[in-house]
Amino acid sequence: MKIKKITKVTFGALVAGTVIFGIGHFQTQAQQEQPAQQAAATATVTECFESREGYTARSRVENVVPEYGYPNIKCSQTTGGVLWWGDPYDDTIPMGDMPDIDDITKGDYLTEDAVIKPREPQLNYFNMDPDKHCVMCHDGKAVPFPKDKKPRMITMHQDIVEDSMELMHGEGAIWCLDCHNATNRNTLIDHRGKEISFNQPQKLCGKCHGVEYRHWRMGIHGKRIGSWIAGGKKRWWVCTECHNPHTVQTNRFQPLKPEPAPALPKGMKNADHESVHAPSAAGHGEATPAAMH
């Protein structure tokens, strides 16, 4: 008798379980579909900046490599930064000549295939004549030249250069016309009076920041994309693509909005425990029993 009862109970449980199992299965399937819909709903950002916000805005172009359907760049949906280059050389021009540096490494092999993203086309203030821009006003007549290079406040151009009133660069020892060409405002000028294109600010910056310039030439400072092979084609980032020359003294890099944090591990509701950390610092560290020097 008991055996019969047990069999009945077991059978009943089996049927009930199958029903629960079925419901559970379909429910979970329904849950799975939700995130996909959300992802499709997010808008696509089609213009984003490369390294410095507000310096280079680049538009996304679809099908740069039609075979794969690549866009030339992929933009971050959250911060508006470039997240991926499909074609690293898109929109670039050859770097042009670069003077030799007396470095212990062999030769200057990299310059041949170096390309840059030109800055000059972006100088479109009063851009009625493609050859003029700044010279439209700074032709020596409309705005008179200052007679000396004594640092002084100017109120001009806060619309183009937001920080023109508080020039940090040089800690007050230099001023605008130490870098900007007084007579041809479309160019920069070095201390020997040599005109330098906005495309190649390193020729100016390197005059003072020699170590950085040499390291940049070697490829161990600054950013490059393209081919990692020594001598291969690379797009070089020039100084001003990363550093804002007007505020570089206080901000080596302009602060950016960071990309979102990773998803919390399953089962964790927040990351509050991280802020409870007594930040360790002097902890010897796994790798590190000895001192640094």
């Binding site: 950016l256 960071p258 950390h277 930040p279 360790s280 002097a282």
Partner: peptide, 22 residues
């Protein structure tokens, strides 16, 4: 510091989310 715990070399925040970095 003698009675304090030594830290981990890699103890830090993985889920930081400030307005701006650095």
């Amino acid at each position: 510091n003698a009675y304090k715990n030594a830290g981990v070399a890699l103890e830090g925040q993985h889920y930081y989310q400030p307005e701006r970095v650095p």
